[in-house]
């Protein structure tokens, strides 16, 4: 009886939930049905249910592939370096923006910083090529004019890594400030005023008020980033990478693309995808566990 009263009163709110729930059910959960392809000799004329079970054979095959370990190593390496280089960048930027006083300057620089986020990697790849090419790149043309030797920015492994990481910062740092800035504006202004009265300088205020104020945000973003350790975007390594640095630029997502979509080895591609998901989950859970132990903050 009370349930009916409750429902009658709040049904609109639940009705609002229908669409998002349906979305998750249709697009997030029902595709998981296909995970079983990893354990089947998938033949798409017979469909998923019609295909033969092969147990763990496909896993054995993937774990014997040299390319799998190389792409796994590269994925972890690129993500780890990216975390070290790209993670602090938006925080630093946000602190600087937050400290900047003139409103018009804040607005303007924020907008300028966001723009790279909306440029597709294909276009960024083109820009990178125009800037850093050995034969006709702008930088090397400049070096040439100064009488210096050309630097193989895109074909030397180490240089390529630097370019890869810096384009990542360039593309995402501005956008990453949004969350930090939102958290910073949420900090009670009186804290700053009190600190100022007590004679705290700018760096003291940043260290003792601003940063602790966004601690939760930092931890949350770190956990999310760690959870994504195993997944790597497809377009960035695919577009920025090239044949000369394939040893470094070939990652799990390009590997899945090649085996799954290009060679039609759906079973193997699904195995790699499943492996990624499981390890990714372990990463999130352990990062969350560690963070709860260390800071009492977590996302679960």
């Amino acid at each position: 009886m009370r349930g009916i009263v409750y429902l009658r009163r709040y049904w609109q709110l639940y009705a609002l939930l229908v669409l998002p729930l349906a979305y998750f059910f249709i697009f997030r959960y029902s595709p998981m049905w296909g995970v079983q392809i990893a354990f089947k000799d998938f033949n798409f004329f017979q469909g998923i249910t019609g295909s033969k079970w092969i147990g763990m054979d496909a896993f054995r095959e993937v774990f014997h592939m040299q390319d799998f370990y190389r792409t796994l190593r590269n994925t972890l390496m690129l993500n780890l370096l990216d975390l070290i280089v790209s993670f602090p960048a938006p925080l630093l930027l946000a602190v600087m923006l937050f400290e900047a006083r003139p409103m018009w300057f804040k607005r303007l620089s924020q907008t300028i910083l966001y723009i790279p986020h909306f440029i597709s990697w294909v276009i960024i790849g083109g820009i990178v090529y125009q800037l850093f090419g050995t034969q006709s790149g702008m930088i090397n043309n400049l070096l040439d004019r100064l009488g210096l030797d050309a630097v193989p920015f895109l074909t030397d492994k180490t240089w390529w890594l630097v370019i890869y990481l810096l384009t990542g910062v360039w593309q995402s740092a501005g956008w990453g400030t949004i969350l930090y800035l939102a958290a910073m504006t949420g900090i009670n202004r009186e804290l700053f005023e009190a600190a100022e009265v007590d004679g705290a300088g700018r760096f003291k205020r940043i260290w003792h008020i601003t940063l602790p104020g966004v601690k939760t945000t930092i931890v949350t973003l770190l956990i999310i980033n760690l959870g994504n350790m195993m997944t790597i975007g497809f377009d960035r390594p695919f577009v920025i990478g090239n044949k000369a640095v394939l040893d470094y630029s070939d990652v799990l997502s390009t590997f899945v693309y090649r085996t799954g979509l290009e060679s039609g080895q759906y079973t193997l591609a699904t195995v790699v995808g499943l492996f990624q998901a499981v390890v990714g989950l372990i990463f999130v859970l352990s990062a969350n566990f560690a963070s709860k132990k260390l800071t009492d903050e977590g996302i679960l």
Binding site: G133, T134, Q135, S136, A150, L154, T155, N242, K243
Partner: peptide, 11 residues
Amino acid sequence: KDFGLDEDKKQ
């Protein structure tokens, strides 16, 4: 010099 980057012969 950049032949390794030119997969689609555009350059």
